[in-house]
């Protein structure tokens, strides 16, 4: 009896809490915190091919003067903005149409829009590379068929079209995911509220702005943060479609880090850029947690 009570007390006490979160903390430390510290440490040294001496913030200084780093950062920012508008915005509009507008075939539509998400990014890249192939690709054949000119360098080979194409493929890939999150949030809004708005005389657009959007604002912020962090970390799609080319036109931090570390053999410089990406990701990650907490409070 006495021992049972002791166990019970242990099960309720703070020690038990630590035991329960212990494994997660250990895994997090071993696989996230420790590599992050190592990366930071690595970034403070010169490349192994240049002697590997401690150079403090030398790699970061070099970064500031590296035009490709700025191209990559600019592309990341464009990617974020474009994806916010196109993935979250379009996803929300599609969700609203499926939620309120379409009665018939909405399940089919949802499946079609969602489907690309289950394809691996590498497969998506290969598929679109084939579609966009400038001599025999589907798009070229379509353009020829209706008598439209096709860009001389193809699409992925053109410095001005390649990045928009990557954005387009990304949207095609992820808009269904955003739509699904938004749709789930919209379906949480009571039907009565929409009817009340209808009786109050609100138009479809007014209803969307006054009822739907405020009702899904946490989901909207969540989607936004997912897109921001995802766009900032993006790698596979760019790597498979253009590998940062032509030239460095579509370089993003993810591809530039991999290229610096493994193709140009500058692991320490790459570590420095990784630290920058990590800092930005932490910033937005904490915003995400904050968003979740404020949601819990209301």
């Amino acid at each position: 009896m006495a021992s049972t009570r002791t166990i019970n007390r242990a099960l309720r006490g703070p020690i038990f809490d630590y035991i329960m979160i212990g494994p997660a903390v250990v895994l997090f430390s071993v696989f996230i915190v420790w590599p992050a510290i190592q990366t930071l440490y690595t970034s403070l040294f010169a490349e192994p091919t240049k002697g590997g001496a401690f150079i403090g913030l030398g790699n970061y200084r070099e970064m500031m003067g590296d035009p490709v780093f700025w191209i990559a950062l600019r592309n990341n920012l464009i990617f974020i903005l474009a994806n916010l508008v196109l993935q979250v915005g379009l996803g929300t509009v599609l969700a609203a149409i499926l939620d309120r507008g379409i009665r018939r075939g909405s399940t089919l539509m949802r499946t079609i829009i969602f489907a690309p998400l289950v394809i691996a990014p590498v497969a998506i890249g290969v598929m679109w590379k084939m579609i966009l192939e400038p001599n025999f690709g589907l798009l070229r054949q379509l353009a020829d068929g209706i008598g439209l000119p096709f860009p001389t360098q193809g699409i992925l080979g053109d410095p001005y079209l390649a990045f928009p194409a990557i954005i387009g493929v990304g949207v095609w890939n992820y808009v269904g995911f955003m739509m699904t999150i938004m749709l789930a949030a919209m379906q949480g809004i009571s039907k009565d509220v929409y009817e009340a708005a209808r009786i109050d005389g609100a138009s479809a657009v007014q209803t969307f702005i006054s009822i739907t959007l405020p009702g899904v604002r946490y989901a909207l912020v969540l989607c936004g943060l997912i897109v921001i962090v995802g766009s900032f970390k993006t790698f596979e799609l760019v790597y498979v479609l253009t590998a940062g080319g032509p030239g460095n036109a579509t370089q993003v931090l993810g591809t530039y880090i991999v290229e610096s570390a493994f193709l140009v053999f500058q692991p320490n410089y790459a570590a420095g850029m990784s630290v920058i990406v990590l800092l930005v990701a932490i910033l937005f990650g904490s915003l995400q947690v904050y968003n979740r907490e404020s949601k819990v409070k209301t």
Binding site: P134, F136, G157, D158
Partner: peptide, 11 residues
């Protein structure tokens, strides 16, 4: 050929 930069060597 067209689109040199988007054509793979294999193609």
């Amino acid at each position: 050929n067209a689109g040199i930069n988007s054509v793979t060597p294999e193609v």
